[in-house]
Design a protein around this nucleic acid. Structure first.
Length: 271
DNA sequence: AGTGCGGCCTGTCCGC
DNA sequence: TGCGGACAGGCCGCAC
């Protein structure tokens, strides 16, 4: 489910509800997520206040005085703020309860998400240490993509979806950004020119910015912290539009598999 | 070293 | 109506 815009929408939505709030209880209903949820989180976090909620890549980082709680939403995860007595759903695996009577719940049907706690420098965590730059940062630009792509034979779409190259570009926004940049997704990354990478870097930033402004993309079940869907779905130019008319040229939107992922594109608008 | 693939899970949809 | 298979917004870990 969530790509960077959905995670950022989640972060911005829940941050005001939990920052400076004091944890009164931690409940792990099902510890079997992608990795086992740490067993002693209630002891670790009880009576601690959330200093801030940040994001790195698609990880949410809850900063406490004693360490960082790190949560990934996987494919189907979402978070909600509710009163503590709100009915529990079958996929509500994890929650933080706060002394103000509210709680933060992680719902994740497929359980590809994960919950971690680390007392050290979180950016040195094994899952974060090797990640590429944030796509919305100045470190990410056409020059960077051009340099990193030299010698690579893979398609440009799988290249920009590699989190060691750049984080946060998932299957929806990879297709959308390549469309906006006018670049065919199957083009070889290592043979793509510098001007094309300039366009692509800008298109990635622009696409992600627009999606964040719309609250992300809801295809099936993504909802914000208050249960609202994201409205960027209506802005999608190619993703999930196979056999429909290209919004620019009217040609038919195609779909193919690249790196085991459905890839949508227009052969007239993209080369 | 770069690349491709299997697998982790559950739900949904489609064709037979 | 039931059932098998494909597919779904992610991504680690392992082969080659």
């Amino acid at each position: 489910m969530p790509e960077l815009p959905e995670v950022e929408t989640t972060r911005a939505g829940i941050a005001p509800h939990i920052e400076q709030q004091i944890v009164s209880k931690v409940i792990v209903r099902n510890p079997q997520l992608r990795w086992p949820v740490p067993a002693d989180l209630d002891n670790t976090l009880r009576d601690q206040s959330v200093r801030s909620l940040k994001r790195r890549a698609k990880y949410l980082l809850f900063e406490f005085n004693t360490g960082t709680l790190m949560i990934h939403l996987g494919m189907s995860g979402s978070m909600r703020i509710n009163p503590i007595d709100t009915a529990i759903g079958p996929y509500d695996h994890f929650e933080l309860q706060f002394s103000n009577g509210q709680c933060l719940r992680l719902r994740d049907p497929r359980r590809f998400g994960s919950v971690h706690f680390d007392t050290g420098d979180i950016h040195r965590h094994p899952l974060l240490a090797g990640l590429g730059p944030e796509p919305l940062s100045d470190a990410f630009n056409g020059d960077y993509l051009f340099r990193r792509s030299r010698g690579r034979r893979q398609s440009i779409k799988t290249f920009i979806m590699d989190s060691r190259i750049v984080v946060g570009v998932g299957n929806i926004y990879a297709s959308e950004a390549l469309f906006e940049a006018g670049i065919a997704p199957g083009r070889q990354a290592g043979k793509t020119t510098r001007p094309r990478y300039d366009r692509l870097a800008q298109a990635i930033k622009h696409t992600l910015d627009k999606a964040i402004a719309k609250g992300g993309t809801t295809l099936r079940d993504f909802t914000s912290y208050e249960g609202q869907p994201g409205y960027f779905r209506h802005e999608l130019k190619v993703y999930d539009r196979a056999d429909e008319a290209c919004r620019i040229c009217g040609d038919i939107v195609r779909v193919r598999r690249l790196g085991q992922r459905s890839t949508y594109y227009c052969t007239t608008c993209q080369h």
